[in-house]
Amino acid sequence: MQTVKMVVTGPFSAGKTQFIGSVSEIDVVSTERKISQGTERAIKESTTVAMDFGRITVDEDLVLYLFGTPGQKRFDFMWEILSEGMLGFIVMVDSTRPETFREARSILETFRAYAPTPYVVAANKQDMPDAWPVEDMRHALRLDSKVKLLPCVATDRNSVKTVLLELLYSILAEMESGG
């Protein structure tokens, strides 16, 4: 059995666990803990502390694993471990929380430094009325026009599929260009 992996990263409460849960054929193996700190607790009750883990069986010989990183900075020691050997990565950003954009950019830069693999950025919660427009997010996140910034709703399977496919197209394009 061959296995490959992709990593879903991003700031706290960006929607990583939901993203994996929308396409994983198993219930996401989540290492969540109740949040004790006040400001974070106001956003959600529990958070990922080690990783999330989802699986998509491709055929009898191949399995894709999706790893979600912990969003809280104090667990960032897990990031490098999780990024090892990944095909590519997805940076999830909550479009309704501009206060997390700076951290999202920092996470993106950190992962780029770990591995020169293709990546896409998913602008999550685009269905919310207070979501920032995708093109404004591109500037706020300082993303080059060549970087794929995709509107996303992590609870919608089709939306998640589009993000995964765009990442796979980028991986294929890089292979074909000799990268």
Binding site: V4, I56, V58, R157, K161, L165, L168, Y169
Partner: peptide, 15 residues
């Protein structure tokens, strides 16, 4: 490797 990525694409499309 390319074939593997193409298989992944086909599988994700079919989800």
């Amino acid at each position: 490797q390319k074939s593997l990525v193409n298989r992944l694409i086909t599988r994700i499309r079919s989800l």
